[in-house]
Computed example of a mutant assay.
Amino acid sequence: MGTGASSRDGDEIAFRLPAENLSDRLDRALALSLPGFSRSRLQALIRTGQVTVGGRTIVEPKYRVNAGDEIRLTVPPPEPAKPAPQDIALSVVHEDDDLIVIDKPAGIVVHPGAGTPDGTLVNALLHHCAGSLSGIGGVERPGIVHRLDKDTSGLLVVAKTDAAHRSLAGQFADHGRTGVLERAYKALVWGVPPRRKGTIDAPVGRSPRNPERMAVREGGRAAVTHWRLLDTFAGADGSPVAGLIECRLETGRTHQIRVHMSHVGHPILGDAAYGSGFSTKSSLLTETQRNLLASLGRQALHAYLLVFSHPRSGETMRFESQLPADFQALVDSLKRG
Protein backbone atom coordinates (compact mmCIF):
# COMPACT_ATOMS: atom_id res chain seq x y z
CA MET A 1 0.00 0.00 0.00
CA GLY A 2 1.24 3.48 -0.76
CA THR A 3 2.59 5.70 1.98
CA GLY A 4 -0.17 7.21 4.08
CA ALA A 5 -2.88 5.08 2.41
CA SER A 6 -5.96 4.33 4.44
CA SER A 7 -9.34 2.74 3.76
CA ARG A 8 -11.63 4.67 6.08
CA ASP A 9 -14.62 6.59 4.81
CA GLY A 10 -14.84 10.31 5.48
CA ASP A 11 -11.04 10.84 5.06
CA GLU A 12 -8.59 12.35 2.62
CA ILE A 13 -6.04 9.69 1.67
CA ALA A 14 -2.68 10.85 0.29
CA PHE A 15 0.16 8.62 -0.94
CA ARG A 16 2.72 8.13 -3.71
CA LEU A 17 2.50 5.18 -6.04
CA PRO A 18 5.21 2.62 -5.26
CA ALA A 19 7.84 1.53 -7.75
CA GLU A 20 5.88 -1.54 -8.88
CA ASN A 21 3.26 0.80 -10.42
CA LEU A 22 5.46 1.70 -13.42
CA SER A 23 2.49 2.61 -15.60
CA ASP A 24 -1.10 1.63 -15.03
CA ARG A 25 -4.72 2.76 -15.16
CA LEU A 26 -5.67 5.01 -12.27
CA ASP A 27 -8.51 2.77 -11.07
CA ARG A 28 -6.32 -0.33 -11.13
CA ALA A 29 -3.46 1.42 -9.34
CA LEU A 30 -5.85 2.63 -6.64
CA ALA A 31 -7.33 -0.86 -6.23
CA LEU A 32 -3.82 -2.28 -5.68
CA SER A 33 -2.95 0.42 -3.16
CA LEU A 34 -6.31 0.46 -1.36
CA PRO A 35 -7.55 -3.12 -0.94
CA GLY A 36 -10.27 -1.93 1.44
CA PHE A 37 -12.24 -0.52 -1.50
CA SER A 38 -13.89 -2.33 -4.37
CA ARG A 39 -12.73 -1.30 -7.85
CA SER A 40 -16.27 -0.21 -8.78
CA ARG A 41 -16.34 2.06 -5.72
CA LEU A 42 -13.01 3.60 -6.68
CA GLN A 43 -14.22 4.17 -10.24
CA ALA A 44 -17.28 5.99 -8.88
CA LEU A 45 -15.07 8.18 -6.69
CA ILE A 46 -12.86 9.04 -9.68
CA ARG A 47 -15.83 9.97 -11.87
CA THR A 48 -17.26 12.28 -9.19
CA GLY A 49 -14.01 14.25 -8.93
CA GLN A 50 -12.72 12.83 -5.65
CA VAL A 51 -9.23 11.93 -6.97
CA THR A 52 -6.28 14.15 -7.83
CA VAL A 53 -2.99 13.11 -9.41
CA GLY A 54 -0.17 15.58 -8.88
CA GLY A 55 -2.72 18.18 -7.75
CA ARG A 56 -4.88 17.80 -10.87
CA THR A 57 -8.42 16.40 -10.58
CA ILE A 58 -8.85 13.30 -12.74
CA VAL A 59 -12.30 11.98 -13.69
CA GLU A 60 -11.29 9.17 -16.07
CA PRO A 61 -10.68 5.77 -14.40
CA LYS A 62 -8.43 4.73 -17.33
CA TYR A 63 -6.08 7.72 -16.88
CA ARG A 64 -2.46 6.50 -16.93
CA VAL A 65 -0.43 6.97 -13.75
CA ASN A 66 3.22 6.25 -13.06
CA ALA A 67 5.49 5.27 -10.19
CA GLY A 68 6.01 8.18 -7.81
CA ASP A 69 2.80 10.02 -8.72
CA GLU A 70 1.22 11.72 -5.73
CA ILE A 71 -2.42 10.74 -5.40
CA ARG A 72 -5.05 12.24 -3.13
CA LEU A 73 -8.40 10.55 -2.68
CA THR A 74 -11.29 12.18 -0.82
CA VAL A 75 -13.71 9.61 0.57
CA PRO A 76 -17.08 11.15 1.49
CA PRO A 77 -18.84 9.75 4.55
CA PRO A 78 -21.27 6.96 3.65
CA GLU A 79 -24.64 8.17 2.46
CA PRO A 80 -27.45 7.43 4.91
CA ALA A 81 -29.15 4.15 4.10
CA LYS A 82 -32.65 4.35 2.64
CA PRO A 83 -34.13 1.76 5.01
CA ALA A 84 -34.77 3.43 8.35
CA PRO A 85 -32.92 2.18 11.44
CA GLN A 86 -35.36 0.48 13.82
CA ASP A 87 -34.85 -0.64 17.41
CA ILE A 88 -35.59 -4.32 16.93
CA ALA A 89 -34.06 -6.87 19.31
CA LEU A 90 -31.22 -8.94 17.84
CA SER A 91 -29.57 -12.11 19.08
CA VAL A 92 -25.91 -11.27 18.42
CA VAL A 93 -23.62 -14.30 18.46
CA HIS A 94 -20.43 -12.46 17.47
CA GLU A 95 -19.49 -8.93 16.43
CA ASP A 96 -16.26 -7.17 15.51
CA ASP A 97 -15.18 -4.26 13.30
CA ASP A 98 -15.67 -6.30 10.11
CA LEU A 99 -18.80 -8.38 10.57
CA ILE A 100 -21.66 -9.43 12.77
CA VAL A 101 -23.19 -12.92 13.22
CA ILE A 102 -26.88 -13.04 14.09
CA ASP A 103 -29.06 -15.91 15.28
CA LYS A 104 -32.16 -14.91 13.31
CA PRO A 105 -35.54 -15.82 14.79
CA ALA A 106 -38.28 -17.16 12.56
CA GLY A 107 -40.75 -14.56 11.37
CA ILE A 108 -38.37 -11.78 10.41
CA VAL A 109 -37.51 -10.91 6.80
CA VAL A 110 -33.84 -10.27 6.06
CA HIS A 111 -34.16 -7.32 3.64
CA PRO A 112 -36.92 -4.78 2.88
CA GLY A 113 -38.88 -5.58 -0.25
CA ALA A 114 -42.32 -5.58 -1.79
CA GLY A 115 -44.84 -6.01 0.99
CA THR A 116 -42.18 -5.66 3.72
CA PRO A 117 -40.90 -2.07 3.71
CA ASP A 118 -39.61 -2.21 7.27
CA GLY A 119 -39.37 -4.37 10.38
CA THR A 120 -36.61 -6.38 8.70
CA LEU A 121 -33.21 -7.62 9.84
CA VAL A 122 -31.58 -4.82 7.81
CA ASN A 123 -33.62 -2.20 9.69
CA ALA A 124 -32.55 -3.77 12.98
CA LEU A 125 -28.88 -3.89 11.94
CA LEU A 126 -28.88 -0.24 10.86
CA HIS A 127 -29.95 0.67 14.40
CA HIS A 128 -27.67 -1.78 16.19
CA CYS A 129 -24.57 -0.96 14.09
CA ALA A 130 -25.11 2.81 13.92
CA GLY A 131 -21.72 4.48 13.58
CA SER A 132 -19.81 1.26 12.94
CA LEU A 133 -20.73 0.67 9.28
CA SER A 134 -18.01 2.03 6.99
CA GLY A 135 -20.34 1.67 4.03
CA ILE A 136 -20.90 -0.92 1.34
CA GLY A 137 -20.41 0.72 -2.05
CA GLY A 138 -20.46 4.14 -0.40
CA VAL A 139 -23.78 3.61 1.37
CA GLU A 140 -24.09 3.12 5.13
CA ARG A 141 -25.69 -0.30 5.13
CA PRO A 142 -24.97 -3.84 6.25
CA GLY A 143 -23.59 -6.15 3.57
CA ILE A 144 -25.98 -9.06 3.09
CA VAL A 145 -24.08 -12.00 1.56
CA HIS A 146 -26.63 -14.76 2.18
CA ARG A 147 -30.22 -14.94 3.33
CA LEU A 148 -32.65 -17.10 5.24
CA ASP A 149 -36.34 -17.36 4.43
CA LYS A 150 -38.64 -15.34 6.68
CA ASP A 151 -39.79 -18.44 8.56
CA THR A 152 -36.40 -20.16 8.68
CA SER A 153 -34.42 -19.51 11.84
CA GLY A 154 -30.70 -19.66 12.48
CA LEU A 155 -27.25 -18.27 11.84
CA LEU A 156 -26.50 -15.49 9.38
CA VAL A 157 -23.31 -13.43 8.90
CA VAL A 158 -23.41 -9.81 7.70
CA ALA A 159 -20.50 -7.64 6.54
CA LYS A 160 -19.86 -4.20 8.01
CA THR A 161 -17.21 -3.03 5.51
CA ASP A 162 -16.60 -3.18 1.77
CA ALA A 163 -13.58 -5.44 2.20
CA ALA A 164 -15.45 -7.87 4.45
CA HIS A 165 -18.38 -7.88 2.04
CA ARG A 166 -16.18 -8.86 -0.90
CA SER A 167 -14.42 -11.59 1.08
CA LEU A 168 -17.59 -13.14 2.47
CA ALA A 169 -19.45 -12.86 -0.85
CA GLY A 170 -16.58 -14.72 -2.51
CA GLN A 171 -16.66 -17.47 0.11
CA PHE A 172 -20.40 -17.96 -0.25
CA ALA A 173 -20.16 -17.98 -4.05
CA ASP A 174 -17.50 -20.69 -3.76
CA HIS A 175 -19.74 -22.76 -1.43
CA GLY A 176 -16.75 -24.25 0.39
CA ARG A 177 -15.25 -25.91 -2.68
CA THR A 178 -11.83 -24.36 -2.05
CA GLY A 179 -12.27 -22.85 1.41
CA VAL A 180 -13.60 -23.58 4.88
CA LEU A 181 -17.18 -22.35 4.33
CA GLU A 182 -19.84 -24.67 5.76
CA ARG A 183 -23.58 -24.17 6.09
CA ALA A 184 -25.75 -26.84 7.68
CA TYR A 185 -29.42 -26.96 8.57
CA LYS A 186 -31.61 -29.24 10.66
CA ALA A 187 -35.08 -30.07 9.43
CA LEU A 188 -38.00 -32.29 10.38
CA VAL A 189 -39.39 -34.07 7.32
CA TRP A 190 -42.48 -36.16 6.72
CA GLY A 191 -41.71 -39.87 6.40
CA VAL A 192 -38.38 -41.60 6.87
CA PRO A 193 -35.93 -41.59 3.94
CA PRO A 194 -34.94 -45.12 2.84
CA ARG A 195 -31.20 -44.43 3.27
CA ARG A 196 -29.06 -42.88 5.99
CA LYS A 197 -27.72 -40.20 3.65
CA GLY A 198 -27.97 -38.98 0.08
CA THR A 199 -27.54 -36.17 -2.42
CA ILE A 200 -30.27 -34.36 -4.35
CA ASP A 201 -28.95 -32.93 -7.60
CA ALA A 202 -31.89 -31.27 -9.34
CA PRO A 203 -32.18 -27.83 -11.01
CA VAL A 204 -34.40 -25.27 -9.30
CA GLY A 205 -36.29 -22.43 -10.99
CA ARG A 206 -39.51 -20.47 -10.79
CA SER A 207 -42.59 -22.66 -10.82
CA PRO A 208 -44.51 -22.31 -14.09
CA ARG A 209 -47.74 -22.76 -12.11
CA ASN A 210 -46.98 -20.24 -9.37
CA PRO A 211 -44.23 -17.65 -9.97
CA GLU A 212 -44.07 -16.92 -6.23
CA ARG A 213 -42.76 -20.44 -5.63
CA MET A 214 -39.77 -22.41 -6.80
CA ALA A 215 -39.77 -25.90 -8.30
CA VAL A 216 -37.46 -28.57 -9.64
CA ARG A 217 -37.67 -27.99 -13.37
CA GLU A 218 -35.78 -28.35 -16.60
CA GLY A 219 -33.91 -25.18 -17.39
CA GLY A 220 -33.62 -24.21 -13.73
CA ARG A 221 -30.32 -23.31 -12.05
CA ALA A 222 -28.09 -26.12 -10.85
CA ALA A 223 -28.87 -27.02 -7.23
CA VAL A 224 -27.24 -29.66 -5.01
CA THR A 225 -28.27 -30.57 -1.45
CA HIS A 226 -26.49 -33.20 0.67
CA TRP A 227 -28.56 -34.72 3.48
CA ARG A 228 -28.13 -37.28 6.25
CA LEU A 229 -30.63 -38.82 8.63
CA LEU A 230 -30.08 -37.93 12.28
CA ASP A 231 -33.12 -39.53 13.93
CA THR A 232 -36.42 -41.23 13.11
CA PHE A 233 -39.78 -40.97 14.86
CA ALA A 234 -42.84 -43.20 15.03
CA GLY A 235 -46.42 -41.96 14.86
CA ALA A 236 -49.32 -42.68 17.17
CA ASP A 237 -49.76 -46.13 15.60
CA GLY A 238 -46.07 -47.05 15.93
CA SER A 239 -45.23 -46.70 12.21
CA PRO A 240 -42.47 -44.33 10.97
CA VAL A 241 -43.90 -40.84 10.53
CA ALA A 242 -41.03 -38.34 10.47
CA GLY A 243 -37.27 -37.92 10.39
CA LEU A 244 -34.78 -35.35 11.64
CA ILE A 245 -32.22 -34.63 8.93
CA GLU A 246 -29.17 -32.46 8.42
CA CYS A 247 -28.81 -30.68 5.08
CA ARG A 248 -25.66 -29.12 3.66
CA LEU A 249 -25.77 -26.86 0.63
CA GLU A 250 -23.44 -27.08 -2.34
CA THR A 251 -25.44 -24.29 -4.01
CA GLY A 252 -27.67 -21.56 -2.59
CA ARG A 253 -30.91 -21.39 -4.56
CA THR A 254 -34.06 -19.76 -3.22
CA HIS A 255 -36.02 -22.25 -1.04
CA GLN A 256 -33.53 -24.94 -2.11
CA ILE A 257 -33.85 -27.33 0.85
CA ARG A 258 -37.62 -26.98 0.99
CA VAL A 259 -38.01 -27.61 -2.75
CA HIS A 260 -35.55 -30.52 -2.84
CA MET A 261 -37.01 -32.37 0.14
CA SER A 262 -40.52 -32.00 -1.27
CA HIS A 263 -39.24 -33.22 -4.64
CA VAL A 264 -38.01 -36.52 -3.12
CA GLY A 265 -41.24 -37.06 -1.19
CA HIS A 266 -40.12 -35.86 2.23
CA PRO A 267 -41.33 -32.25 2.61
CA ILE A 268 -40.55 -30.31 5.74
CA LEU A 269 -43.11 -30.36 8.53
CA GLY A 270 -45.10 -27.13 8.69
CA ASP A 271 -44.11 -26.01 5.18
CA ALA A 272 -47.34 -24.56 3.79
CA ALA A 273 -45.81 -23.78 0.39
CA TYR A 274 -44.08 -27.06 -0.43
CA GLY A 275 -45.66 -29.58 1.93
CA SER A 276 -49.37 -28.82 1.86
CA GLY A 277 -50.09 -32.11 0.10
CA PHE A 278 -48.83 -33.95 3.18
CA SER A 279 -51.04 -32.13 5.71
CA THR A 280 -53.11 -35.30 6.21
CA LYS A 281 -49.95 -36.92 7.63
CA SER A 282 -50.62 -34.97 10.82
CA SER A 283 -53.36 -37.51 11.60
CA LEU A 284 -50.52 -39.96 12.35
CA LEU A 285 -49.26 -37.70 15.15
CA THR A 286 -50.50 -37.70 18.72
CA GLU A 287 -52.77 -34.85 19.77
CA THR A 288 -49.88 -33.22 21.67
CA GLN A 289 -47.64 -33.43 18.60
CA ARG A 290 -50.34 -31.96 16.35
CA ASN A 291 -50.78 -29.06 18.74
CA LEU A 292 -47.03 -28.44 18.88
CA LEU A 293 -46.79 -28.50 15.07
CA ALA A 294 -49.72 -26.08 14.80
CA SER A 295 -48.15 -23.72 17.33
CA LEU A 296 -44.84 -23.86 15.43
CA GLY A 297 -46.71 -22.26 12.53
CA ARG A 298 -43.83 -22.49 10.04
CA GLN A 299 -41.47 -24.90 8.31
CA ALA A 300 -39.33 -26.86 10.79
CA LEU A 301 -36.02 -25.68 9.31
CA HIS A 302 -33.12 -24.18 11.27
CA ALA A 303 -29.68 -23.02 10.08
CA TYR A 304 -27.68 -24.46 12.97
CA LEU A 305 -24.07 -24.42 11.68
CA LEU A 306 -22.03 -21.66 10.02
CA VAL A 307 -18.29 -21.81 9.33
CA PHE A 308 -16.28 -19.24 7.36
CA SER A 309 -12.86 -17.62 7.16
CA HIS A 310 -12.62 -14.23 8.84
CA PRO A 311 -12.12 -11.66 6.06
CA ARG A 312 -9.36 -9.78 7.89
CA SER A 313 -7.48 -12.35 10.01
CA GLY A 314 -8.13 -15.49 7.99
CA GLU A 315 -9.12 -17.27 11.21
CA THR A 316 -11.71 -20.04 10.84
CA MET A 317 -14.89 -18.86 12.55
CA ARG A 318 -17.30 -21.61 13.64
CA PHE A 319 -20.74 -21.05 15.13
CA GLU A 320 -23.50 -23.43 16.18
CA SER A 321 -27.06 -22.57 17.18
CA GLN A 322 -29.46 -24.61 19.27
CA LEU A 323 -32.91 -25.37 17.89
CA PRO A 324 -35.50 -22.72 18.86
CA ALA A 325 -37.58 -23.73 21.90
CA ASP A 326 -40.77 -24.45 19.92
CA PHE A 327 -38.85 -26.52 17.34
CA GLN A 328 -37.07 -28.45 20.11
CA ALA A 329 -40.36 -29.09 21.93
CA LEU A 330 -41.76 -30.73 18.79
CA VAL A 331 -38.63 -32.88 18.42
CA ASP A 332 -38.82 -33.94 22.08
CA SER A 333 -42.49 -34.87 21.74
CA LEU A 334 -41.76 -36.94 18.62
CA LYS A 335 -38.99 -38.76 20.51
CA ARG A 336 -41.37 -39.64 23.36
CA GLY A 337 -43.92 -40.90 20.84
Rank of each mutant, 00 (worst) to 15 (best):
L168D: 01
A169D: 08
A169I: 01
A169G: 09
A169M: 05
G170L: 01
G170K: 08
Q171V: 02
F172Q: 04
A173F: 03
A173D: 04
A173W: 03
D174S: 06
G176F: 00
G176D: 00
R177I: 06
R177Q: 10
R177V: 11
R177G: 02
G179I: 05
G179D: 10
G179N: 15
V180R: 11
V180M: 06
L181A: 07
L181D: 00
E182S: 09
E182Y: 00
E182P: 00
R183H: 00
R183I: 00
R183Q: 04
A184W: 00
Y185V: 07
Y185N: 06
Y185G: 06
Y185S: 05
K186R: 14
K186E: 11
A187V: 08
A187S: 09
A187T: 08
L188P: 09
L188G: 14
L188F: 11
L188V: 13
L188C: 13
V189L: 03
W190K: 01
W190I: 02
W190G: 01
V192Y: 05
V192R: 08
P193G: 03
P193D: 03
P193C: 04
P194H: 09
P194L: 09
P194V: 10
R195M: 03
R195S: 08
R195N: 04
R196S: 12
R196M: 08
R196L: 10
G198Q: 02
G198T: 01
G198A: 07
T199E: 01
T199P: 00
I200Q: 13
I200A: 12
D201F: 00
D201Y: 00
D201Q: 07
A202N: 06
A202Q: 05
A202Y: 05
P203T: 06
P203F: 05
V204F: 03
G205C: 12
R206W: 12
R206P: 11
S207L: 04
S207T: 07
P208F: 04
P208N: 06
R209N: 10
R209T: 10
R209H: 13
N210C: 07
N210A: 12
N210L: 05
N210G: 05
P211A: 11
P211L: 11
P211V: 10
P211M: 09
E212T: 11
R213Q: 14
R213A: 12
R213G: 03
M214F: 05
A215I: 09
V216R: 06
R217G: 10
E218R: 01
G219Q: 07
G219T: 11
G220T: 10
G220C: 10
G220H: 10
R221G: 08
A222I: 13
A222P: 09
V224E: 01
V224Y: 01
V224R: 11
V224Q: 06
T225V: 14
H226R: 15
W227H: 09
W227Q: 08
W227E: 02
R228E: 14
R228T: 07
R228D: 12
L230Y: 02
L230E: 14
L230M: 14
D231K: 08
D231L: 07
D231P: 02
D231C: 07
T232G: 14
F233Y: 15
F233P: 14
F233T: 15
F233G: 14
A234I: 14
A234E: 06
A234T: 15
G235Q: 13
A236P: 02
D237F: 13
D237I: 13
